[in-house]
Design a protein around this nucleic acid. Structure first.
Lengths: 124, 124
DNA sequence: ATGATTGTATTATTAGGTTGATACAATCAT
DNA sequence: ATGATTGTATCAACCTAATAATACAATCAT
């Protein structure tokens, strides 16, 4: 699984988002143990300091828990996980419609566009 | 109109995107003259050098044309403008579905989710 | 012709992100 | 007990982005 990091944004922020997705999508199950800072940093081809920063950020959000000298685990608070997942989904929907609206598309146009596209001006 | 620049991404890149949208949406019509570097920089509360960099970037894409000592204009190539607009729209659609799939939603789920009209943020 | 405005270029400085190289105390497996 | 691994902290170096302060030649309005 590639990490496809973008140079146009802080790496640690991208790591946070990626790990967030991996947790709420169940790739890292609730209560499950996470790879170590050094190991994940190695996999992502990133400096351990950067991965550490991402982990610290995730912990502030409550998604992961640190056992001082024994690694980290995903929280067992499945409700929190679900809430974050729904929050992310809503955010994506909102920004998507917002961006399409900026371009001049109405909500109705966008929806019909996704269903199969009828007279939206995008066929050409 | 606020410029709501994000500190988490290069400002010049955000300026490029914003100006792109303003052009393809017709806010700056084809062949129309653009504000000067200094004026736009002032409006956006940004350093002239940064705005200059954004303009240079847009010019490389062909969207705007520079009259050496007499300001800039939007290209009159409406076909190019339309192509860029469609490209932006397609990009938004693709990344939207991609992000939703990352979270575990199928394409069919997303579409029916949007048709249900539950919270798109565009009703108002 | 004059003065203001245009795009453009230069230099210096600041701030933030990233990397690399360490180092330490606490824990686990053996 | 020993050695490896854990999270954590620190320091220096580098790079990019952004700002600030200028400066210049070419154009336009007057």
């Amino acid at each position: 699984m590639a990490w496809d990091l973008d140079s146009d944004r802080p790496i640690y922020a991208q790591l946070v988002e990626r790990l967030q997705v991996q947790i709420v999508s169940g790739y890292y199950p609730p209560g499950g143990k996470l790879p170590s800072v050094r190991e994940l940093a190695s996999v992502a081809a990133v400096n351990p300091n950067t991965m550490q920063k991402a982990f610290a950020e995730l912990e502030r959000g409550g998604l992961i828990i640190t056992q001082r000298t024994n690694g980290r685990s995903v929280t067992e608070d499945t409700e929190l996980i679900q809430n974050i997942k729904l929050g992310l989904a809503k955010g994506h929907i909102e920004t998507f419609f917002s961006r399409m609206q900026e371009l001049g598309y109405t909500e109705r146009e966008v929806v019909s566009l996704l269903k199969g596209g009828c007279g939206t001006g995008m066929e050409a």
